[in-house]
Design a protein around this nucleic acid. Sequence first.
DNA 1: CGGATTCTTGACTATTTGGTCAAATCGGAC
DNA 2: GTCCGATTTGACCAAATAGTCAAGAATCCG
Lengths: 219, 219
Amino acid sequence: MDAKREPLAGSRTGPAQPTRIQAINREVILDAALEVFAAHGFRGATVDQIAARAEMSKPNLLYYFRRKPDIYRAVLEHTLSDWLAPLAAIDPNGDPIEELRRYITLKLRMSAEKPAASRLFANEVLAGAPVIGDFLKTRLRELVHEKAGVIGRWVDEGRLAPVDPMHLVFMIWAVTQHYADFDVQVRAVLGSQVAKPGFHEQTAQAVLTIVLNGVRPRG
Amino acid sequence: MDAKREPLAGSRTGPAQPTRIQAINREVILDAALEVFAAHGFRGATVDQIAARAEMSKPNLLYYFRRKPDIYRAVLEHTLSDWLAPLAAIDPNGDPIEELRRYITLKLRMSAEKPAASRLFANEVLAGAPVIGDFLKTRLRELVHEKAGVIGRWVDEGRLAPVDPMHLVFMIWAVTQHYADFDVQVRAVLGSQVAKPGFHEQTAQAVLTIVLNGVRPRG
DNA sequence: CGGATTCTTGACTATTTGGTCAAATCGGAC
DNA sequence: GTCCGATTTGACCAAATAGTCAAGAATCCG
């Protein structure tokens, strides 16, 4: 007999033949889960909250993702590559200052447009990175070392001031993600300014000024 | 009759006459709670975890703090003033670069010595600052505006490059707290370097170089 | 249409969690 | 030592939460 496809194999192990409804609902669930996990972390989030936000009964949600950790992992995977792309895009052959400007600008835009993704990672790492720990120690580590090498070469060539490449990367992450992760604090301190049009451009301007001046070689 | 002191008035509303045992146990509980709340946030933390870490039965813990939110509030209050002190210490009459250097150094030291405190705030703010929201919008806001005024004056006097004072403060917070909040990530990427002696000095050196160069007035 | 399959959910269970209570133990002032 | 309030905890309860299940509703395909 031909291999009988189990009811949900596709939705759990791989997209063997995802239905239209499956595709839609999995997307809806992941969107809802992203918001909830981003706000409260894995342990603080509840399946009921996610189901409510997805406008779907809990058993229905669990029909698509059998267990809470499955949802969590799926959300993380769904978001990880996006989050890494800007760093990967740094071009060794580009102009150092321009490459950093583009990188910072992209990261700031992501923080503005997808703050929940940033908060999701923040919560995961704060909790000790129980799920993405391996990823951090392997793929992220390799990528950062690669790009730190590029920055280090720029420094050696005198095209950047003598800065520690690793710490420069950390600084850029810290500052750009701060505007997503600590949005509530930024709003509390800055008040109505944040809502004004052009706020993001102003932020980008300020961040770029300090960081780029900090790494520009001094005459 | 003389006012009969209720059994635990002191331990709940104010230190009317805290016993030696009370003082010790409240301290033990707050230390334990700090670690647990810092790792999992308010919702993710459990009273049992805190009690276990404090090496004390749950009912005993609840004898000192009646409810979970009471513990949480106490931990936050216990930590808030410390966390703010370095910013408050910026001296309008000091040398701009030296004042910023001292501020960054202090914040970095706090992140290294009390990472849990930083993570506690990070979790609270990530969750939308349900407890310290008012504090952020009042006391923190006032303090930051005051110090931003100082920095703004330094800029006007030409003693700092033209930078947005608010964003400079955010940048310093972001970078310094990053080393506490994202410690796991930093370790994953940097590996064994983090354990080496002198790592913190190296970090401070790198951060100070970039930020101070970023704000130093250009010839 | 009609039958098979996918999708949906109300009702339920087991476990975890915040919190209570009464009884037992401890500690300090006399 | 003795006494009384302070401290401690085992046993317990109610609510919240992750996950199950069987049965009904919708959808797809010929």
